[in-house]
Design a protein around this nucleic acid. Sequence first.
DNA 1: CCGTATATTGACACTCAGTCTTATTTAAAG
DNA 2: CTTTAAATAAGACTGAGTGTCAATATACGG
Lengths: 219, 219
Amino acid sequence: MTTQQARDRSLPLRERKKLRTRRALADAALRMFTENGFDATTLEELAEEAEVSKSTFFRFFPAKEAAAIEAETELWTAYLAALADRDLSGPVLGELHQTLAAAVAGLDPGWDERFVATRLLVARESALLRYVEHYRSGIKGQVVACLAGKLRLDPEDLRLPVLAELAMTAFSLAGRPWIYQGGRGGRKALLERHQDAVKAIPASLDLSAPAQPARDGGN
Amino acid sequence: MTTQQARDRSLPLRERKKLRTRRALADAALRMFTENGFDATTLEELAEEAEVSKSTFFRFFPAKEAAAIEAETELWTAYLAALADRDLSGPVLGELHQTLAAAVAGLDPGWDERFVATRLLVARESALLRYVEHYRSGIKGQVVACLAGKLRLDPEDLRLPVLAELAMTAFSLAGRPWIYQGGRGGRKALLERHQDAVKAIPASLDLSAPAQPARDGGN
DNA sequence: CCGTATATTGACACTCAGTCTTATTTAAAG
DNA sequence: CTTTAAATAAGACTGAGTGTCAATATACGG
């Protein structure tokens, strides 16, 4: 289901075991939270499912929520790595868009399915939504720092967080309808939606209200 | 320190008491979390400081974090109210900017000071940061819904969340340096910074990297 | 193959946020 | 003053998250 590198002979036995445990916990979390609900699933049950103790769980994940969003984590980790490697040239928003697209293209074959399941779960469980928002905000901060370094700009330059925000927002918004269709069309379809969302950004700034709206309530 | 309407004779006694209790809890939270740290302050101590029981605390606030960010809550509540009342005409981003400025202008005289203290605390305590991020995200959703109604657009229109995000991001970014100067210049200075941040939005989209950067590492 | 240093783990105790129930108090209305 | 409805205090209870310690498994040098 997850990355197949757990049988990789290149890694020492100890590391392979750790990877397997981590995957077992993440898979169990996604499945059990989806089936029984986040609150109704206790950590002990989850740990027992993966045949480890509660203490071991916390050696792999900093919180109950974290185990459920591995697919999200893989995505943004790949994004940050791709960004660090990239030579930027031309409009930065476009570069961020391409970087994210490249990161998505390089993910595990099974990632699509897990990502859809993860985001459906997150949309249902507010505790997870909160956690993901905070996680993405941390990523955004790292993107800003990376960009400031590459572009030799003041890290306080307001344009950087705006761009980082827009790039991530566009992707997340693009993902929403894709997810509710069960990921139809695979990640190729996701990237097309992402493209559209990026185009919607300058269009947003041009959005105007009619000069004199009918004034009959509105909201 | 907080709103002075607690002695307002127009309100029934019971309501006045509730307001006083709420303020006592919010003030105690801001002060105690700042002095002793968020984790080191238990709910029982906080409740005892305000001379109520733990159960009462949870009748006023949904979480320990919520009591510390009343100033933030007042701001965005006023923003939503101002937006609901407003007739939109012209570029929407500019309208959101003006709406927020009007909301800030209408807040309590003591709000500035509490807001500075709140945001300094939030920046220090990651649990509070997480909570605020989630709170603002909920506000953003309400802004999108309100805009969709007023502009008669599909609530799924990607431009709406982008605009809502940009308006809030601009304000929060503008607030950062203002806060670290202790709110120097009052809310007038804050609104000037806000103005600059809004201007930085279209400038962000134009930001380009040099065609061939020196390629010497960067980050 | 064996013994030792070093991670990794399980078991357990502990704190505290948050929920729930019940009995008591207090404001408002008649 | 009495009745009614709301607010509150007190305290039991659940479960997440932390810290400690002993047991166990792994890597590694001989």
